[in-house]
Design a protein around this nucleic acid. Structure first.
Lengths: 341, 341
DNA sequence: TCGGCGCCCGTAAACGTTTACGGAACTATG
DNA sequence: CATAGTTCCGTAAACGTTTACGGGCGCCGA
């Protein structure tokens, strides 16, 4: 005898009552509920997930899908850990569990979703590493599986998404650099599969145009979002006939490699070239400290969770005011890498 | 009509046959199997996870438990991503799915396990951030849930575990430094909750003793495994009356902060002090490049997966020779940070 | 006394699978 | 032709829950 039946037998009451007691139903005597709770504790009873979700059609599990192995987003080393923490802070209030769904680099993300989600694994999804054309969105939408994406795509019209405010970053950074006299400004852009690239570069162009400046095509640097990529960017930049006087690094991870290549060439950020990047835990520990855009990843996680729940009927009423399509602001942290002259 | 029943109705055969066909049972006509497969594909049928695992008592899911928010091990996103990739490479062959079980920093890890695992969520577990005294081990052992831990603890006697070869690292590094003339060598150690700290420092002490040297207590530095922690270590080190001529950094993340504090004081690794650390993607991009111990995280993941499967009856015969208690070797990557004089 | 009502509880169906069992149709063997 | 064996398929039970339904019991007011 196992499970709830064992508990019922032990208490000499019916399994129905046990279930009701455990689930906080009103139609059970307060006295019996106490006894049931105590016995459950004593026997270490935990309801079987499969049985419960088979009956209820719900799992109380939310999946955060991330892709292992690949390097396309260029998020720093603590990025996901921090976001997870924020998401969980919200989910804990609703007895929801967060698990990370790990899609192998060897498997197509859409196939993965089909396998693992269509079989009723999670009640809702958070998608990261959103691609410019992302078939996962359509897949989930037509199946009515609640989801929210971290990152914009071209196919997310009407779907809930959150993203970092890369336009704000572009605008602020460009304005700041131009105000300090820079006229020739370089930018980096991530992989073409990521919509962010277009959004960011376009906004940089606009911001420059507002000052009567143009974005030289040779000043748009692509690379893998890794330390080595940053190194390569600096090498390419230094090799230019006409060097820029400033650069905007859109990824977190590339700053170290970028700094190193400059250092080898005797070029110093903040003196010979202005550098603005993205915050990461080591941004302050570079020489000179990196001027960068920072955001609270935990708060971003909280917002993601609330956005997701606001699309789920069972939780909707708790989050009527949640953001559905929004960019998450970043603040500028002053370092010394963009001092100049 | 939903699920397998719908498929059966559509094909006008019984659900039993459909199930057998999909699961590759021998007692089904090859012709019918083709039809079933085709129809499943066409209708986008995917077996319901709950129904299947309720019946089978197995989920085909392996959980990799990690703790979010907290900073105790100093392992970041890229560490786990790489390990995951290796684990998945093995699991893919057995139609097992890997998910990361995210334990919030606000919840006790043991409580978390009780909640999420005792309810039959996963067939097996990989535990990370193993503590010196880790009640999770006993919990899983007495429930006969297959598991393997990444990291040793005091309570894992007879349990399967894998760990990095910190003894080998200590031995190699100490021997190397002593051979180069160092007599006063500092080491770092992680949080006391992590067994690694004892293992590593003890071995350092032994290795030094073999050369007739002792490990001065004031040369054992503790800190959080973060950039800021590394910074603090360097400050403390520099403030000593009698500075060491070499230091061994046992965590990955602290090197940057350590370098920065040295730099601010005009002390250069490889010239004024020898530094040996752990590999991370930015180790080569420090100035000077860090001499460090590296390992293949993907291979470590593969070994973890094989070790776990070798303890699971259903897969045991595939991995008769798997490591059960083993340390994973690290290789020394020559940088310039331990050149001296 | 009797009907109605509220409180609490037991019964049993249902969720979507897998699989043991049995049987029908066919083949091979003597 | 009888029998045994093989191949394939349908039936139904079982996995562990939740929950709709109905009923027993005590209480209250008429």
């Amino acid at each position: 005898m196992k499970g709830i039946r064992r508990l019922a037998q032990h208490l000499d009451i019916s399994i129905g009552t046990v279930s009701r007691a455990l689930n906080g139903r009103p139609d059970v005597n307060e006295e019996t509920r106490k006894r049931v709770m105590a016995a459950a504790q004593e026997l270490g009873y935990v309801p079987n997930q499969s049985g419960r979700s088979l009956r209820q059609g719900t799992t109380n599990i939310i999946g955060f899908m991330i892709q292992t192995g690949t390097e396309i987003t260029g998020q720093g080393d603590t990025f996901f850990m921090s976001v997870f923490d924020g998401v969980q802070a919200v989910f804990a209030r609703h007895k929801l569990d967060l698990v990370a769904l790990l899609c192998s680099s060897e498997e197509d993300p859409s196939d993965y979703l089909r396998r693992v989600v269509a079989r009723g694994f999670a009640d809702g999804l958070i998608l990261s590493a959103t691609r410019r054309h992302d078939p996962r969105i359509e897949f989930l939408a037509e199946r009515n599986i609640p989801f929210v994406t971290l990152g914009r795509s071209l196919t997310d019209a009407g779907r809930p998404w959150l993203d970092l405010d890369f336009e704000g970053m572009a605008q602020t950074a460009i304005d700041r650099l131009v105000a300090r006299g820079h006229r020739r400004i370089a930018v980096t852009r991530p992989h073409d599969d990521v919509n962010l690239g277009y959004v960011f570069v376009d906004r940089c162009r606009e911001a420059l145009a507002a000052h009567g400046l143009t974005l030289d095509e040779e000043l748009i640097f692509r690379s893998t979002p890794t330390e080595a990529g940053g190194y390569q960017i600096a090498r390419d930049l230094l090799a230019l006939e006409e060097r820029p006087t400033a650069i905007l690094l859109v990824n977190e991870t590339i700053a170290i490699g970028f700094y190193q290549a400059l250092s080898e060439a005797g070029v110093r950020p903040g003196r010979d070239i202005a550098v603005i990047g993205r915050y990461s835990p080591h941004a302050h520990f570079l020489s000179p400290p990196l001027t960068c855009f920072r955001l609270s990843l935990r708060d971003l996680g909280i917002a993601l969770a609330e956005t997701l729940l606001s699309t789920m009927p069972a939780f909707k009423h708790h989050y009527p005011q949640a953001l559905v399509n929004a960019v998450w602001p970043m603040e500028l942290v002053e370092g010394e890498s963009d001092a100049f002259g």
